[in-house]
Design a protein around this nucleic acid. Sequence first.
DNA 1: AAAAACAAACGTAAATATGACGTTTGTAAA
DNA 2: TTTACAAACGTCATATTTACGTTTGTTTTT
Lengths: 245, 245
Amino acid sequence: MEPEKILNISVDCVVFGFDINTKSLNVLLIKRFLATQDKEEILVDDYVLTGYHVYKEETLDETATRVLKELTGLTNQYKKQFKAFGDPDRLMNPKDIIWIKNEAFHLRTTTIAYYFLLKTEDVDVNNSKKQAKWFPVSNLPELGFDHKKIILEAYEDLKIKCLSEPIIFKLLPDKFTINEVQDVYQSILGIEIDNRNFRRKLINKKYIIALDEKQVGVSKKPAQLYMFSKDIYDKMFSKNYLISI
Amino acid sequence: MEPEKILNISVDCVVFGFDINTKSLNVLLIKRFLATQDKEEILVDDYVLTGYHVYKEETLDETATRVLKELTGLTNQYKKQFKAFGDPDRLMNPKDIIWIKNEAFHLRTTTIAYYFLLKTEDVDVNNSKKQAKWFPVSNLPELGFDHKKIILEAYEDLKIKCLSEPIIFKLLPDKFTINEVQDVYQSILGIEIDNRNFRRKLINKKYIIALDEKQVGVSKKPAQLYMFSKDIYDKMFSKNYLISI
DNA sequence: AAAAACAAACGTAAATATGACGTTTGTAAA
DNA sequence: TTTACAAACGTCATATTTACGTTTGTTTTT
């Protein structure tokens, strides 16, 4: 006889980090643990996203924020809820059978998936209790559960979204060079962009502000630093949508 | 003492229908019923989205498809899962207290929200058991629960998405005129578009095919009919994203 | 001190797209 | 026939894009 199913809601977080040195878009993953009925923890040789079930008095957003903080120590990072995954058979692992009075119940876990955008340099990977590690999106390790699917859907969403909103700057430090912005686009979209045209286009945006500062400590001509002005951007697009039908 | 909470997962559907005659983007809503503890049904004087809880062996997509079919009889319509709503206090109504052995439990319902795109003319509103009715997005009635919020978030998503993907054609018959396409954009985005420029732009798209047919039964010069070729569109954008950084 | 290396930054010309309009055309109804 | 009117076509100035070539300003090497 099939065990009864008990509902469970969790949040899973795809943490995207851009590495400005290797020019690579990465995902932060942890080693997978299996908890058996006896609460013993067994390390399995693959990686998973971090997630947790939603607490009783918590909103979904709050769960995501909490999960990120526990993993990275960071708060106030850009996050987006992009998809819920709730197939009845999306399970799972021995932990998903719970025992009530000697009767087995299957947990059916629906997960609300979020992605975060931040800089790899902001995360102290070694300080984490969780054996967290960065992997390039283009070269993911073996992944547990349906987490590969979740990462790829987050990535697709990011690709589309970064073309219609200036979220790219969440992956860069406050002060950046034109070429660094180009690096992010190239890395996310997997394309080559002509630097001269890209440069002109970006500099002409009103919301890209040239600072009175240049790079320091580089062994070539140091590049001009810029910042992104959210204020100006918001004013420009407050009412009208960019029409490019 | 606070009653314990029991989890529940539902799907709610925002059914968008374009009315080609009134040139209006509408939402299909039903009168709200309240089921009390005694299973008596009380009609409340506001409207709600249609939704239902997710069956035991159902995927979320299947639930959405089922809900749409029960409401409209239609299958194979464009649908998109756009957001999960799961605030702990997002409910509620008397139905959301359930009684187990004289003990009250609160249902905490997380809803996975979908929107559908179709033509109002495809739905026989009167045939529906549910007292379904179309309302313009710009003039919604009093809405129950957090359904106004859900509709508005669906609408925002649609506005952005229709500028980056050709989903607009899901709101139109297979054969349409240029002006009808313009009507849909104007209605969704709430803007005026210059007809001469719009026309030129649209006709130049390779995936807009002129048919050997014209409108019939109109009392003015009958317009040329066109169709959208998904094949051609997919080939054009199969690999590369439209870069407009 | 001069030269080399090299990314940063600037420049240009042709092709294409856009925005803001005016004009013609084809059909049904008067 | 004529009229009404949306459908459909046309034009021109400006802006944007594409595809390249060239110069500049540091640091490192000679």
